[in-house]
């Protein structure tokens, strides 16, 4: 389903805009292609929404949700979806995205992004919920691949195959988090090349890049480091295979000076421009 509202992010580098940088970004208006914010931080309106409206005057805004739980085995949270719909109506974002994960089961809510087995049953379940969300928002949803620390013996397909089938069934787009794929390749032995080939290039509407950290041998998607060289390499490979797309620098813990994020965004922009020249030539 392609809803009336389409994704209009520019094929440029943006940053995840978090509270410590609101003021500086609004005061200095740095040269950024776009910004992304976490949807839930603006639910309920109030002071944060004031800030977002002002940001929206200067930059395309992408709304990135962390709480909808597309694979949760509880009914889709009507209050949460309403709040998201209201935010979309108010902000008219350039893109709306959620994660391919779950966060609630049997009355327990786990405020995290959790993996699930990639089965046909799960595909039916997630596809139904993506349909519901797109119907409600009247727009295409971008679904992000997950970073995982565990996997399930019962999976019947890979995450890439699952996402490909999901886009086919629902018309949703893909937010391709390159760092998440790298983390899964290292942690779980996921075949990164096979993932890149499995997902339809035309459905990929956005990339994410971030830094991870290491705990007892496990790569954890902490968004608290610069992007590692190996992830830049994978990003370059992704750009060659899939093409240039809007690319976001995410940093959520131990958030550094804005200049550090701008530096990372500049590195992404160089790579984007290089591949755009190749595509043009």
């Amino acid at each position: 389903m392609n809803g009336p509202a389409t994704n209009t992010l520019p094929s440029a580098a943006g940053i995840g805009l978090r509270a410590p940088h609101y003021r500086e970004v609004l005061d200095t208006l740095p040269a950024l292609g776009w910004v992304e914010v976490h949807s839930e931080n603006f639910f309920g309106g109030g002071a944060p929404l004031h800030t977002l409206f002002r940001v929206r005057e200067h930059y395309p805004v992408s709304l990135h949700g962390v709480g909808l739980g597309l694979a949760s085995v509880t009914p889709l949270d009507a209050g949460h979806l309403s709040a998201l719909a209201r935010l979309c109506a108010d902000v008219q974002p350039a893109a709306v995205s959620e994660h391919l994960c779950w966060s609630a089961a049997d009355g327990m809510v786990i405020n995290d992004l959790l993996p699930f087995p990639y089965t046909r049953e799960a595909l039916d379940h997630v596809a139904r919920r993506v349909d519901q969300v797109q119907e409600r928002l009247q727009r295409q949803l971008l679904v992000e691949n997950l970073s995982s620390y565990l996997s399930f013996s019962r999976s019947e397909m890979t995450e890439g195959e699952f996402l490909a089938e999901l886009t086919k069934r629902t018309g949703c787009g893909i937010l391709f988090d390159v760092e998440n794929l790298y983390v899964n390749a290292r942690n779980l032995g996921v075949d990164a090349d096979a993932f890149i080939k499995a997902i339809p290039a035309a459905a990929v509407k956005e990339y994410h890049l971030a830094g991870y950290s290491m705990r007892d041998g496990c790569l954890v998607d902490t968004h608290d480091h610069p992007i590692y060289p190996e992830v830049w390499d994978l990003y370059e490979s992704v750009l060659r295979h899939i093409g240039p797309r809007p690319t976001l620098i995410e940093w959520d813990t131990d958030i550094p000076e804005l200049a550090v994020l701008m530096g990372e965004a500049a590195k992404a922009r160089q790579r984007l421009e290089a591949v755009e020249e190749c595509h043009a030539a």
Binding site: I110, N111, L150, F152, R186, R215, C218
Partner: peptide, 27 residues
């Protein structure tokens, strides 16, 4: 038991520990 037990560089217990830490840490 359907969670895979063997990973190249860590144990399933380590991975579960990451999720348990995330759960409490986020709250």
């Amino acid at each position: 038991p359907r969670i895979r037990q063997a990973y190249a560089d860590y144990s399933a217990e380590t991975a579960l520990g990451v999720y348990r830490n995330n759960y409490r840490g986020n709250l």
